[in-house]
Simulated assay, not measured.
Amino acid sequence: MSAIPSGKTCPSVLLVHNRYQQAGGEDAVVENEAALLQARGHRVLRHERHNEELRQLPRWQGAAQAFWSAPTTHALDVLIEAQRPDLLHVHNTWPLVSPAVFWAGRRHGLPVVLTLHNARLLCPQALMLREGRPCTDCVGRLPWRGVLHRCYRDSAMETALVAGVTQLHRLLGTWSARVDRYIALSEFARQLFIRGGLPAGRIVVKPHFAEVPQRAEQPRQGLLFVGRLAEEKGLHLLALAAETLPPGECITVIGDGPLRATLQSHPRLRLLGAQPAPAVLEQMRRAQALVLPSLVFEMFPRTLVEAAACGLPVLAADHGPMPELVQHERTGLLFEPGDAASLGKALRRVLESPQDARRWGEAAREHQRAHWSAETNYLQLSRIYADLLC
């Protein structure tokens, strides 16, 4: 199956991405999409910057590149002139790629696509979190509130820098005139970005996908958390809810981050640290449910689609896109956001009703195959490309 008309050559795609110092979901998504395109005959070109470069740059130079990266535009000019791609697909630009990438693409006459992995265009912090709750104060407004509250790295100056980049490029018309198509990861995210001022007619929804080797079903036991060990992921809620589990039960925690030392001694949390992808999938095949207690509006957690592919139901906070992604009592359970008692009730229900959890997991797997498979995702992505190239 393909959205590229028969007889047409698959378009060549230039993927641009700014990698994070600690590799995360966005980095993995870029790799997965590159492999997806290459496997289906596309020539995939890459231009990447890495946040490790910041260690070698004077602070003023890093800040200057966040507004307009001359090294990025020069490298792209050379690459595009030499390789002549058909389309430019951008993922993360912060901070070293910069929004200058969109001007470079347009200057060379390339259609430009941007995947909206996080909320940085709406919120200087990119998480929309303040005082442990979702915050939309800066959505569709000048982000002075974010500066006032020191939302990014607890620094008014650094928050002002991030906000300044977004606002400068709003004034320059970068978001309104230099990006041909935005990819939101859910309908919730699409509506949020429309509210934030992006042109509604240019935003399409394309979720993540997962290709997971299938294994024979085996006995399942216990609960699982996979993610960064940070405040926004709701780890304090998880710790409180874990204390309400029946004797002998605990939650396996995979990941690393600033809260690891705090959580290490918790008697009901079994910390495994960061694990390679195959080990994470193996844990997903053995667990009874994946827990997503995030305090923030997750755009589309990659772990959710991987869990579904492994036949693992998800317990998620009932806000943001989660009611769209988790069907309550069909593919998992939804609980009250920020409420440890509600989360604890959901955890105990899974442990006390394993037959329900198994049924929800099977429904989640069927949903993933129908909506979040590699083939379905390729059809969606290739249609986006084809619409811009026709």
Rank of each mutant, 00 (worst) to 15 (best):
188 F>N: 11
27 D>F: 13
220 R>D: 03
139 V>Y: 04
37 L>Q: 04
365 R>W: 13
62 G>Y: 10
208 H>A: 01
43 R>E: 12
52 E>C: 11
125 Q>L: 07
209 F>H: 12
372 W>M: 13
54 L>K: 07
348 R>F: 01
76 L>S: 00
257 G>K: 06
330 R>H: 14
78 V>A: 15
26 E>M: 10
156 A>G: 13
46 R>F: 14
157 M>Q: 13
62 G>F: 10
35 A>N: 14
343 L>M: 06
306 E>H: 01
351 L>R: 05
368 Q>F: 05
108 H>G: 10
23 A>E: 12
213 P>H: 03
125 Q>A: 10
228 R>H: 15
57 L>A: 08
194 I>R: 11
27 D>R: 13
169 H>R: 06
212 V>S: 08
17 H>E: 09
79 L>E: 10
81 E>A: 15
177 A>M: 03
275 Q>N: 11
106 R>W: 00
159 T>P: 06
325 L>H: 04
300 F>E: 05
69 S>T: 00
177 A>S: 14
370 A>T: 12
45 L>T: 08
186 S>P: 07
16 V>A: 06
232 E>L: 03
342 S>D: 11
270 R>L: 05
99 P>M: 04
104 A>Q: 09
189 A>V: 14
331 T>M: 05
330 R>M: 09
33 E>I: 08
122 L>Q: 06
96 L>F: 09
165 V>K: 10
172 L>M: 14
65 Q>R: 15
270 R>T: 02
69 S>D: 08
190 R>A: 07
368 Q>W: 15
99 P>A: 10
4 I>W: 08
206 K>D: 05
231 E>V: 10
210 A>F: 02
199 P>L: 11
362 E>H: 12
222 G>R: 00
335 F>V: 07
343 L>S: 03
11 P>R: 02
45 L>I: 09
7 G>A: 02
291 V>M: 00
252 T>L: 01
317 A>G: 15
389 L>V: 04
201 G>M: 10
361 G>I: 05
61 Q>T: 05
299 M>W: 00
260 R>F: 00
2 S>P: 09
9 T>Y: 02
383 R>Y: 01
5 P>M: 03
12 S>M: 08
320 G>Q: 06
46 R>H: 15
306 E>W: 07
233 K>W: 05
134 P>K: 02
300 F>I: 07
275 Q>S: 12
163 A>Y: 03
382 S>I: 02
281 L>K: 01
214 Q>E: 15
290 L>E: 05
386 A>D: 15
246 P>R: 07
14 L>T: 11
184 A>Y: 01
